[in-house]
């Protein structure tokens, strides 16, 4: 039988691996290696590492996610080099019947334009998402242009429950295109009383002195300016939470737009991973875990 052998094109293998980890190996006929390389890259980059980061203490979120970037880039680069070497070694290669351009196109469309975007979306929706704090309403806890990681495994079935004192990310009820970040002060059924600079939850004052507030064993810094907050007394409806900004005189929060439906609470601030002020990067805030 006449067997047609060809030389694999090392540049094509390199280009294909650059496009998708494992794609160059597929071109070289190493199907098993191609599948594992793609899966390892996918898990290292997205869901696997993000999930590990969420189970570790909040302070380790950034280092673990930095490791994720380094590891996935390493797998990507290794895959490119391996595909190059593999193609160079295949001088008398017998192409398998399935090695046709249509199949390659299908693989790249499926993996590159369906699997990868779906994984990105799943990670950002259900695991970790990064936010740029756009206002000073949470000062002194969060400054304008702090970049934070938020835990998206929050306030859902099987996820971390909502507690008083949590810094929550939620959809702004009056404009659902906007995302707000505030501190949860009251849970469903709580009676919130605000009088001047004094806030109490179910009759328990939050003020601990020296600009500190606290409840349920947690404490945080707040800042008040002028004018003092208007007086109000409200009961948090069921299925909703009462939120306030730590910058009490410069925050639009539940005092203005009412309680926030729990369904709109989508994340919990975990760690600051970068911070930019007028003078450049605020290095001292990197890695800080806001309380």
């Amino acid at each position: 039988m006449n067997v047609v052998t060809v030389r694999r094109n090392k540049w094509r293998a390199l280009a294909m691996s650059l496009v998708l980890p494992g794609f160059g190996q597929l071109y070289n006929g190493e199907v098993n290696k191609a599948i594992w390389l793609f899966l390892i890259f996918l898990l290292l980059t997205g869901p696997g590492i993000a999930m590990i980061a969420l189970y570790l203490p909040a302070g380790l979120t950034m280092p673990v996610l930095v490791f994720s970037v380094v590891a996935s880039l390493s797998v990507w680069v290794w895959g490119i080099a391996d595909a190059w070497r593999g193609a160079r070694a295949r001088v008398d290669y017998v192409p398998a019947p399935w090695q046709i351009s249509g199949l390659y196109a299908l693989v790249i469309l499926l993996c590159g334009f369906v699997v990868v975007p779906a994984t990105v979306d799943a990670v950002r929706t259900h695991e970790v998402q990064s936010f740029d704090i756009a206002s000073g309403s949470m000062e002194p806890t969060l400054l304008r242009h702090d970049l934070v990681f938020a835990d998206k495994r929050y306030n859902c079935v099987g996820c971390k429950a909502v507690h008083r004192g949590d810094i929550a990310i939620f959809t702004y009820p009056n404009d659902r295109t906007q995302i707000y970040v505030k501190r949860i002060i009251g849970l469903p059924g709580d009676v919130i009383t605000i009088g001047g600079r004094s806030i109490s939850v179910n009759g328990q004052p939050l003020d601990m002195g020296a600009g500190t507030e606290g409840i349920d064993g947690r404490s945080w810094q707040v800042q008040w300016g002028d004018p003092p907050a208007a007086e109000m007394r409200t009961t948090v409806p069921s299925g909703a939470v009462f939120v306030l900004g730590d910058n009490r005189s410069n925050s639009t929060d539940s005092r203005h737009f009412g309680a926030v439906p729990l369904d709109d609470v989508v994340g919990n601030v975990r760690q600051i991973w970068a911070s930019f002020g007028d003078g450049g990067i605020r290095w001292e805030r990197l890695g800080m875990v806001p309380r």
Binding site: G46, L65, S72, L73, D132, L147, I169, Q178, I179, W273
Partner: peptide
């Protein structure tokens, strides 16, 4: 897109 994927958790959305 792959590069964006690697950096996806570092891509910020605005939160006020």
């Amino acid at each position: 897109e792959l590069a964006l994927f690697v950096l996806s958790v570092w891509t910020t959305s605005s939160a006020g």
